[in-house]
Design a binder for these strands. Structure first.
Lengths: 404, 404
DNA sequence: TTAGTTATTTAATCACTTTAATTATAATTA
DNA sequence: TAATTATAATTAAAGTGATTAAATAACTAA
C-alpha cells in the first residue's frame, strides 16, 4: 500500500488541473481554481510548471467585456505527447497514433489471419505495423510516450499477462514485457472491450459519465463496464462475459455447452453461421460459392433478403433482452454500442429497441440512454491508445517524453 | 471537487492505520508502518493522537523470543464509539447498537405493519425503538456517534432522500433530515441491500474481498454490488434491481408487466402466493383458514409437503439461473446470500447449486464462491450500523464523540 | 482620471511526512 | 558479566506542497 504523502497530493492536483483543461478545451487559471477547489496561488504554480514543460500554453486572453482583468485561457498542447494504440483481432490488426487530445494523427489497418499463429509472428507483426504507423504520422519512435495494446480475451493489465485469448491456445503469455523488449516503449495491455470503454470515458460518449456500459459487436459480443468512474474488470479480469448470458432458453447449443447463449444469435460468427444455413436451405439464393462474410450478409439483408433480415432482427431482439438485464442490474446512464457489428443498422437496432422497451420497467429505462455512435475500424486502436493517455494524464511529469 | 491538501493525506493515513488495526486485531507500530507504507515516525505520531483520544490502546507487548525490543501491540478500543443501526421493513423494524468493532451490544426487533402508514408514524416508531435499544445496551444517547438507516427501495444516500419505497406511496421524502431533527445524531440512510453489503465488506464475508455480490431474500429479491472495493449504486441508486431480470420466459406475469421476472418465483411474496394457490387447488391440505406465512410454507415443505417443496426447488432453480447471469457479467470472488429467505435451506439451495453448475462456464464458476452464512434478523440492523462505522473509520477524529 | 472589479502573482506561513539520529529493550556471544 | 547485534519506538531537523494574505496587473464604468 502506498502511503499518502506530498507526492500524492501533487499528483492529484496536477491531474485535476490537466483534466480540467482537457474537459473544457481552454480555460483560465481562476476557473481551474474554482473547478478543482485549489487555491489560485497553487494553480499558478502548477500551471507554470506545465507551461515550462510544454504540456500546456497560454492560448489567448478572453475578452468578455466584463469588469476586471481579462482571463488568460490555457489550452493543452496537443503535440506534448504522442501515444500508439494497437488492436489485435482474429483476422486483422489496426494501429493508431494519437496526440495528447486523443486525435488520431495516423492509422493503419491490415488484414491477416492471426488465429493459431505463432506468438513471435504476432509480436513481430505488431512491431512492424507500429513502425509504419508512426512513420505515416510523420513522427519518430523517440517521440512516442507509450504504447497501448487491446487484446480480445482475458488480460491481467497489472502484470501485463495475457491469460486466455480466442486467438491462440498457448497459456499465460507476458505480452507486455515481450513487446517492451522489442520497442523499449512503456507498454500497457488490456482487454479490447475495456480499452474502448476507457476511450469513451476520456474522449467519447462517456465524458463526464460515471456509470456506463459499452457493448462491442465483433466476432462475438463484448461488454465493458464503467462503474463509479472506474473500469470494472471483475476478480480475475473475466467480468463482462456477456456472450454467455442466456437469452433464448430454447435456442441453439453454444460452444460453452449451454443453450441459447447470446453468443449463439449475436456477433459476426453467429450471424454468418445462420446465414450459411439459410443459404444451404435455399432460403437465400446466393451467387458463387465463396466464403460468406459478415458484410455480405448485411448487404444482402439491407437489399431486401427477407431471411437474412430476419436473422438480424432476431439478433437485435435478443440483444435488447440482454440490455434489459443489464439495465436492471446496473442502472447505467448510458449504454454505448460499438464494433463493426453496428453496420447492421436499423434492421438490428429497431428490433433491439422494441425488445428493450418491452422488457424494461419504464421508470428505469428512462434513466438509460442507448447510443450507437458512428463507427470506424480504427476506433479500436484509438481505444488502445487511450489506455496510455489515461496513464499519461495521471502522472504527466513522469510519463511524458520531452518534446525534442 | 475537493482539492488534495494536507488534510487529505492526514485523513488517508489515519484511515489506513485505523483500518490496519481493525483488520489485524492487534498489531505493532512497525507492522503498521510496513502495511501502510508510512514511515515509522509518522505511525508513532498518528497512533499517539489516537491513543490520546481513546480510540486505540496499548494492549500488551508481544514476546516473540526474537532479538531486539519487543513489539507493543495496539488494539482498537471497542468502546471508543457506539453506533445505532435501524432496518425498516414492510412488517417489522429492527434496531441494533454496535461498538467500534461491529459487535452488537444490544438489539431489538418489533413486528408491526408499516405499509401505507403515515410517515410521521414510521419516524416516531423509529425514535422509540432507538431509545429502547440504546437503553437495553446500557448506554446513553449521548454516547451514540451516529445512526444508520436501511430502507428498502431507492435511496439517495448523498442527499438523504428516500425516492421510492415499497412501504409507502409518498414521493421524495427527506428521511435523513427528519430523523436528525428528532434525535440530533449524525444520520445516514441507504438502501437496505447496500447496508448489508457494506456490513459484509467491513465485518463479514466480504473482508478483504474487492468484488462480491450480496443477494438478499426477503419479501422480494435484492442485490448489493461491491465493485473495486466500492459500493455500486448505479446512476440514480437503482442498481441491483435483480427482481425484474427475466428468468422464466413462459412464466407468470409480474407486477412490472413483464413475464417470468425473478420476482415472480423468488422472495417471500412470490412463494407465499404460489403456496396459496396450491392450498386453493387442494394440492396442499392445510388446517384452518389463517393467512399463510412464509415460515409456515418452509415448515410444511421441510416436513415433506411435496408441492411446496417443489415451489422452493423451482425458486432455487431460477435463483441459480439468475446467479449464472451475474457470474458471467461480474466475475465476482464471492456471492453471499442473506435475508430471512435463507430459512428455506437445502430444499432451495440444492436446486440453486445445480442450476448454477449447469448454466455457468466451469472456468468462471471456479472463480466464484457462493456462500450462505448463518442468518439473524438483527443482521439487517447491524448492516445499517456499519453504514455509520464506515464513515467513522473514514474520518475518526471528526466523527467520534468524546468518551465521557 | 478614479473607483471598483476581477485575474494573477508573490511572500510568508503552516501542516504534514520523511530522513537521520537517538533511545529503549531484547537476545546472542565472548 | 559485559560487549555486540538486532529490532522497536521516538525525537529533531529538513523538505515540500498548499494556503493565506498582500501585492500587482489589467480591465470597465462613471
Amino acid at each position: 500500500m502506498p502511503s499518502a504523502n506530498l507526492d500524492l497530493i501533487r499528483a492529484i492536483n496536477q491531474f485535476n488541473i490537466l483534466n480540467s483543461i482537457r474537459i473544457r478545451g481552454a480555460v483560465s487559471r481562476s476557473e481551474i481554481a474554482d473547478m478543482t477547489g485549489q487555491s489560485r496561488a497553487s494553480v499558478t504554480t502548477i500551471t507554470a510548471q506545465m507551461i515550462d514543460k510544454g504540456m500546456i500554453f497560454e492560448k489567448n486572453t478572453e475578452v468578455t467585456g466584463e469588469r476586471g482583468r481579462n482571463r488568460v485561457l490555457l489550452a493543452l498542447n496537443p503535440d506534448a505527447a504522442f501515444v500508439v494504440g494497437v488492436k489485435l483481432a482474429a483476422s486483422k490488426m489496426s494501429c493508431a497514433v494519437c496526440d495528447m487530445q486523443g486525435e488520431t494523427r495516423g492509422s493503419i489497418i491490415e488484414y491477416e489471419d492471426f488465429r493459431h499463429k505463432n506468438i513471435d509472428f504476432i509480436t513481430g507483426y505488431m512491431e512492424q505495423i507500429i513502425h509504419k504507423t508512426v512513420e505515416k504520422a510523420g513522427l519518430s519512435m523517440d517521440s512516442v510516450s507509450g504504447l497501448g495494446i487491446g487484446v480480445p480475451g482475458v488480460v491481467d493489465s497489472s502484470t501485463g499477462t495475457c491469460h486466455w485469448s480466442p486467438l491462440y491456445d498457448a497459456g499465460d503469455f507476458p505480452l507486455r514485457d515481450r513487446i517492451f523488449e522489442k520497442l523499449n516503449i512503456k507498454t500497457f495491455i488490456e482487454n479490447d472491450a475495456n480499452t474502448l470503454t476507457l476511450a469513451h470515458q476520456w474522449f467519447g460518449e462517456g465524458k463526464g459519465v460515471d456509470n456506463f456500459l459499452v457493448i462491442t459487436l465483433e466476432e462475438g459480443v463484448g461488454l465493458g463496464i464503467m462503474a463509479n468512474g472506474q473500469l470494472f474488470r471483475g476478480s480475475r479480469g473475466f467480468a463482462g462475459e456477456m456472450g454467455h448470458v442466456p437469452v433464448a432458453p430454447d435456442g441453439e447449443e453454444c460452444v460453452c455447452g449451454k443453450k441459447g447463449c447470446l453468443a449463439t444469435v449475436l456477433g459476426a460468427i453467429a450471424i454468418v453461421k445462420q446465414a450459411k444455413r439459410a443459404a444451404e436451405n435455399g432460403e437465400w439464393h446466393r451467387e458463387g460459392n465463396s466464403e460468406i462474410t459478415f458484410s455480405e450478409v448485411i448487404g444482402a439483408a439491407k437489399s431486401g433478403q427477407k431471411e437474412l433480415a430476419g436473422i438480424l432482427r432476431r439478433a437485435g431482439h435478443h440483444l435488447g433482452v440482454g440490455l434489459s438485464v443489464l439495465i436492471n442490474i446496473f442502472n447505467p446512464q448510458k449504454i454505448i454500442i460499438s464494433g463493426h457489428g453496428v453496420e447492421a443498422g436499423d434492421l438490428m437496432f429497431n428490433a433491439m429497441e422494441e425488445a428493450v422497451n418491452r422488457h424494461t420497467f419504464s421508470d428505469m429505462l428512462s434513466l438509460t440512454k442507448i447510443i450507437v455512435p458512428e463507427w470506424q475500424h480504427t476506433d479500436w486502436a484509438k481505444g488502445a491508445a487511450s489506455l496510455v493517455l489515461q496513464e499519461l494524464y495521471k502522472s504527466p511529469f513522469n510519463t511524458i517524453r520531452p518534446v525534442i
